[in-house]
Every structure is written in C-alpha cells, then in structure tokens.
C-alpha cells in the first residue's frame, strides 16, 4: 500500500471500522450499540457510516423489530481488506521509525 486510506484514517471512521472488523461474521452491529462502542453521537455516526457505505466499506441493513426501526452495520469484504491494508500501513510507519 502506497499511502494511508484517507476514508478510513479519520478518527471516528477508524473506530467504526475497528468495531465492525472485530464483529465481522455476525449479523451486523446495531446502530445504538455501535454508537456506544465508538463513542459517537447519533448524527456523527450516521454521517460517517454513510461515507463508509458510499466507499463500499460498510453495508447498512434496515428492518423492523416489532414496530421499532433497526439499522445494522457490517463490514464488507472490500472494507475488511482496506482496513487490514490500512493497519498494515500504520504498522509499517512504526517499523520504519524503529528500524
């Protein structure tokens, strides 16, 4: 990887991707749960999720539990690949600095 992934590197989006990457393989993370895990406000989280979904890194699924709307987010295969590449890039910076 030549440079950082500028979409992922923003602080809140980095935390969102880290949470979704850690929870991959499940049924997605509910919006409220994700908000608590990454320490975001409703508006902030919604806006950054839209950015990540637009890049194809995250998929959003909306349904109803009874009468309550529910939004679940999960990381896509492209998103998982990009996240791993970005963390490898960050580790590379540290390795270069130490070497």
């Amino acid at each position: 990887m030549d440079g950082p992934d500028e979409i992922i590197h923003q602080s809140l989006r980095l935390r969102i991707m880290a949470a979704l990457h850690a929870a991959r393989g499940g049924e997605g993370v509910e919006f409220n749960r994700l908000r608590a895990l990454v320490g975001a406000t409703d508006g902030n989280l919604g806006s950054h999720l839209t950015t990540l979904a637009g890049a194809g890194y995250v998929s959003l699924e909306k349904d109803f539990v009874g009468k309550k709307p529910r939004t679940r987010a999960s990381i896509s295969a492209d998103g998982a690949r990009a996240f791993r590449a970005h963390t490898d890039y960050l580790r590379g910076i540290l390795d270069s600095a130490e070497g």
Binding site: S11, R15, A22, L37, L94
Partner: peptide, 16 residues
C-alpha cells in the same frame, strides 16, 4: 500511527 493503532486495539477489545 501509534495513536491510531492504540485506538484500533482499544475499540476491537471493547467490541469483543
């Protein structure tokens, strides 16, 4: 980079 990796580790641990 170190701060970002720490943030990732903390978020992943919290999620797990």
């Amino acid at each position: 980079a170190a701060a970002a990796l720490d943030e990732i580790e903390a978020t992943e641990q919290r999620t797990r």
